[in-house]
Every structure is written in structure tokens, then in C-alpha cells.
Design a protein around this nucleic acid. Sequence first.
DNA 1: TAATTCATGTAAATCGTTACATGATTAT
DNA 2: ATAATCATGTAACGATTTACATGAATTA
Lengths: 180, 180
Amino acid sequence: MSLPYALLGLLAVEPRSGYELTKEFSGPLGQYAWQAGHTSIYPELNKLAERGLVEVTEEGARGSRTYSVTPAGYTELRSWMLTPPQGTKVRNQQVLRMFLISALEPGDALAMLRRIAAYTAAEATELREIMEQAPPEIPEGPDGFGYLAAEYGLRQYDATHGWARWAIEKLEARAGAEPA
Amino acid sequence: MSLPYALLGLLAVEPRSGYELTKEFSGPLGQYAWQAGHTSIYPELNKLAERGLVEVTEEGARGSRTYSVTPAGYTELRSWMLTPPQGTKVRNQQVLRMFLISALEPGDALAMLRRIAAYTAAEATELREIMEQAPPEIPEGPDGFGYLAAEYGLRQYDATHGWARWAIEKLEARAGAEPA
DNA sequence: TAATTCATGTAAATCGTTACATGATTAT
DNA sequence: ATAATCATGTAACGATTTACATGAATTA
């Protein structure tokens, strides 16, 4: 379970309330890395506070509580971050769909690959425009996060696009060679 | 929950037993796309059989049962495969770690990025060697799956490697420019 | 003042993992 | 014979999601 680390990481970048943390998960973080809703975030924040890894450093309007990581929390985060990857557990519906393409009839498979190619091209174009207007260096503070994420997303879309085009070529070659 | 579709997809490529399906998840499928253990696979197969989407087509030694997809199962799989991606839910510890890099001190962040760069380069090299010895066309039947997956993994590793090197450069530029 | 957004929570149901359990077959 | 592998399953626990619930502050 990585949710506590996701929260520690976000709070280490900048103190936030549970509500603000929740919104963070609807951006690139939730899209590429890890998703969570407010019903798991609020209880998890309370658990982290009990363990002394985060603390409420500000109370605002409408009962909002801003959390910050404690030194103990940062130590915990750091050791998790520097832990070598092992037993990597992945769940990604899109990638699963791609992997199962060979289960479809060639016609359906080609249609799907073309849709993937079109979709990834569109997403990459969008991100490229964003990155072209971005500063040439990683911004300090909370914006650095989005900067790294956008570039990561862009490269992933480009890679998937390239793969889809490669697969289309391969499939078309087979379709052309075989039915003879 | 995508497990039933993963099973339908694998069985559509080739009929298999629960035991063989389980092994499939310890390969590239479980590594990049979707993971599952035998304790979720066996009950899920029974559910799919009750719904008439798969059926036992062979019973072998040691009580093994080979499942195949029924026409209804293929229809179900196909409609899921061709469903446009929406509300994409992702869980990936590695990617989460990458996204949280900006929460670390610059020294730690650089160390982590260098480790990612080294790791992805090694994995890509390994896959490249495999692909160089592979046939020039997508194989028919169950091997097509691994062929598509290997190429996909290779391109993902290359992309992540490129991203890590880009991030290292950016961070080094900032580290060099700032502390003046 | 009515609707929307901010802000937090609980309860029930579902899903997934870990641990436990069993027996058949094959290899040493 | 013994160990390893094949082959399937259940039970308990923990995590996640969906639905329900509440109230304060802001905007129209």
C-alpha cells in the first residue's frame, strides 16, 4: 500500500489540507501513478498523524486542517523512496488492453491499434504545447512536480504511439502475406 | 476490476488451466499491465463459468481443468476491448516514486534518478537482445502476446531512461546555477 | 436565498492479499 | 522415500470504493 507515501511526498513538497490533497489525485498523479479518493485520504491522514509522521500546522475556515510532514515523516518517506524496486505491482487497464490485442481478430486488433495511435498522438501534442511554454528549468517548490510529470507523460505517450505504429505495420504485413 | 477480462483475453488466445493462467501473471503481463495471484484467479474462473463466459473443455491429471472462452465470452471481451478508455485507474509504485522525486533533497533526488537511469538501461538492453533474435513478424497464436509485450516494454524502458537523463540534466543545471 | 463549492467524515460492500490447507504426480 | 512441482481451493485480514451524511462559506 503506497497511499501513505504518496501523502507524505505531497506534504513534503508543500503542506496541504486533505481537501487539497484529494484534488491533487485527480491530476497527473492519479492519471499515471496512483489514484485515491477522499474517503481513503482522510482516514490515512489521521493514521499518519497518530504515528507522528505528519502534524496539523494550521487550522483554517470551514474546519480545514493543513498538514505538514514531521522530521520522522521525512525520514520514513526518504527510506521508502530510496528502497530498490522489488516485487513491482502494477495495475493499468490501458496497458492490459494493449497486451490482450492478440486475442482479437486481426480486423478488430488493427482498429484498436489505430485508435491507440490517434489517442496517444493527440495527448502528446497537448503536452508538448504545455512544455513548450514552460520555463527551461525545473521550478522550485510545488510546481516542480507537475513539470516532471508532464515531461514523463509526454515521453510515455510518444513511446506508446511508436509502439502502436510498429504493431500496426507488423499486423498489416502479416495480413497482407497470409490470406493468399 | 479488470481481472475477468484479463482471463478472458488469455483464454481467447489459448485455452489454459487456472494454474497456467497464474504463471502467465508472473511474466510481462503482471509486470507491466495487471497482476493477480492464484487465490483470485480460481474463484474468478468459477464466476466466469457460472456466467457462461468460459467453460471447462478438458480435464487432465491432478484434477486440472482447462478452460476455453465461449462465444458469449468472446463477445464480452471484445466489447470491453473496444470500449473507449474512460476513468483510467492506475496503480504503479515505480511511477509514484518518480513523481515524488521533487519531494527529496536535490542530492537524494539525483541519486534516485541515476539509479532509475541505470536500471532502465539494463532492462532495455536485455529486452533488445531478446527482440534481435526474434522473428521479423508477429508470431501466430500464444507467442504473439509476448512479442508485442516485449517490444512495448522495451519502448517504455527507453522512454523512462530518456526522461531520467533529462531530469538529471535539469537538476544538475539548477544545482550549478543556484547555490552561488 | 438558492446553488455551488469547500471541507470533512462514517458505514457497508467489494476487492485483493496473506496465510493456511490438501492431495496428486514427477524427479532425485 | 523424499523433495519438488503441479493443481486447486478456503478463511481471515486489510485495503478500496460506493453510498450516505453533514455543515460552513461563497457566489449568483
